[in-house]
Design a protein around this nucleic acid. Structure first.
Lengths: 215, 215
DNA sequence: CCTTCAATGTATACACCGTCAACACCATTA
DNA sequence: TAATGGTGTTGACGGTGTATACATTGAAGG
């Protein structure tokens, strides 16, 4: 209701700070994020943020929760219940990589050790688990259909996750900047996902790498 | 020759600082490493390190180079030219994961974005590439033997690398701390490597996940 | 309506940090 | 012997996270 207070009390400082934080992270990276900086942007004193976030770590955990939720949303949107598990896995893998590439600094917040004591932020953990569950569900479907290796779905889903996360990490860390690839980068991403997911297949089809097929 | 100078000139400050840095990283993590801190430990003034390292980033790049070299050494030691490529890949994967787990803070230095402008430290890059080359060599052998998918060895080796690196990262980031696994952690690691490397095999053998086999 | 109180903001301060500039020491070498 | 350049120190600037004490306020209760 009070659109223009501009007074002693901000109105919704908590949200404004979170927005400013995400903005700074996007713009200048997590490393450059500072509590004093976002206070300056929002136009409050340097200690005002501490009325809303216990410390910088808590603020970061909320940024991470938000990013995890975005990751869940786009992963979920890539799932088509009528499609085969392997196709859904390919699709989610690709949008996952694209999210990481398009939001490198947010991705760096949710993974890596900038947030300490992760286990003391259960809502953040939960937001992360939800994305992983998408993968587990598809793997279970694949196992039941007899397409995937029988056994524990969590273990198989984890292999997929580690491979895609590893690819995302190495890309963001710049390990492919000067590396010569035998194909366009987009095809490289697809190839990585296709090859990696082959690990789950009971009878993987032969595969031709150059040129990569898109199916 | 001058063992006990304790004078104005230190003698080998550069090395002492590097050692102190690695020590601090091991002990308290990269985040806590400070130029002033290592100067204090070594017993010199806070700006003395700048006579030997242009800035903190340069110092970190040297720590990373050293860690990459260690990683190369243990990976190389796990290779047996008389063994099959797939077995060598399993062996290097395992020691790689063990290195990450036993040296979490060093691993965090060489990956992640604590070091900025990686491409301006060519000797560090090169040290990293050498480890990757081990993987490429084995993959080439596997392709030539007709065991692996034919095509570009770099692409296949990369899939292996991303999967193992992803696993290492997630482990270090604490994503398995409260996760219930259906097997002991060591077996979990082996299972991840075995499943992941299946992706390369032209005709992967059926696999039984519980209990995991060790061959 | 007025008082009170908890929530929210500020001012100040402490102990750190990376790094720059100016100066001090000293081994080597011309 | 004098000079030079490598290596160390001092001191400073501007930044950081955050603790403590104080100020302002909107809302709730008498």
């Amino acid at each position: 209701m009070t659109i223009e207070t501009a007074n002693y009390h901000h109105g919704n400082l908590r949200l404004a700070l979170l927005d400013a934080a995400i903005d700074q992270i996007k713009e200048h990276g997590v490393e450059k994020l500072s509590m004093r900086g976002i206070a300056r942007i929002v136009g409050v004193s340097q200690t005002a943020p501490y009325r809303h976030f216990e410390d910088k770590n808590h603020l970061l955990s909320e940024v991470a929760t938000q990013a995890f939720t975005e990751l869940y949303a786009i992963s979920m949107a890539a799932i088509d219940p009528n499609e085969s598990p392997i196709k859904n896995i390919h699709a989610t893998g690709l949008v996952y990589l694209q999210y990481a590439i398009n939001n490198p600094e947010k991705y760096r917040v949710i993974f890596g050790s900038r947030i300490q004591n992760r286990q003391s932020y259960p809502s953040m953990i939960e937001a992360g688990e939800k994305s992983f569950q998408i993968l587990i569900d598809q793997v279970e479907r694949g196992i039941e259909a007899g397409d995937f290796i029988p056994g524990c779905a969590l273990i198989l889903a984890n292999t997929l996750w580690t491979q895609v996360h590893g690819a995302a990490s190495l890309i963001l860390d710049g390990f492919y900047i000067n590396r010569e690839l035998p194909m366009p980068f987009d095809d490289f991403l697809k190839a990585q996902i296709m090859i990696g997911s082959r690990a789950l297949l009971l009878n993987p089809p032969p595969i031709s790498l150059n040129p990569p097929n898109n199916s």
